[in-house]
Amino acid sequence: MDSEAKSRAKNSNAARRQFIADTARLACGVGLLGLGVGLYSRHATALPPAAIRPPGALPEAEFSGACIRCGMCVRDCPYNILHLAKPEEPMSTGTPYFVARQAPCEMCEDIPCVKACPTGALDHKLIDINKAKMGVAVLVDHETCLSYLGLRCEICYRVCPVIDKAITIDIQTNARTGRHTLFIPVVHSEHCTGCGKCEKACPTQIAAIKVFPIHMAKGQLSGHYRLGWVEKEQAGGSLVAPDVEHQYNLPEGMKYEVGKGLSKLPPADAAPAGPGTSPGLPKAFQGGKL
């Protein structure tokens, strides 16, 4: 009787050991698989710069958790610009994107792609397409930009849906010829929606202006920086000490105005103009002493 109980205990012990071994094997195998899948998916959140998310997309780290890869945005885009990432593409499989150089966002006023999103991965709070932040256009290559070369191009400026806000033209002297003007497109990130129309329209072989994800395109000042002129305007006056009018040590008879430079003072009839003096000359040259 005793030996039977013992062997039964031995059996159950062996069964327990087997169970633990099997469980451990399973857990390790599945754990390894999970590690692989997890790392793979983390790597995929490094979106390639040419892939632009649709309007209203949450920041990439949140987006890849919020987007369920259903493609409703793709279907409701009236211009068919959106694709779902294929497994071999270096981003989260099945998530939507567009490539500006192929087909830019047409910035529909009713934003159908956002409305179609069932999870809010495209944020439903975005109701004004001009507030979209799909990316930021950057005039990346000054060496091939036709405007920088002195040509009258400015196509990016003309096609910009937020013209004169997102892209303005900065007029500069063409130092190379000395007699012409450069019409330089300047992007203002505050107004740029990242639609990519400028990149699409750029006439060079490879676009000189490109849309990049905001985190790649934008710098940021350290938190302790204060812009004096902004602070002054907000405060309605200087914050440090009352402004004292600057005293210029100027040649006699001359005046200086900010933005205009030196100019002659209007001839005064009063005393300073003594005999034999000409008002434009410094004192040292006056009086025939030299």
């Binding site: 698989l33 899948v37 998916s41 959140t45 890849s64 890869r69």
Partner: peptide, 18 residues
């Protein structure tokens, strides 16, 4: 179970990759 852990830890719907 692993797919939920992977989702929670990576912050992405990890299983959808494969």
């Amino acid at each position: 179970g692993m797919t939920f852990v992977a989702a929670a830890v990576s912050g992405t719907i990890a299983w959808e990759m494969v």
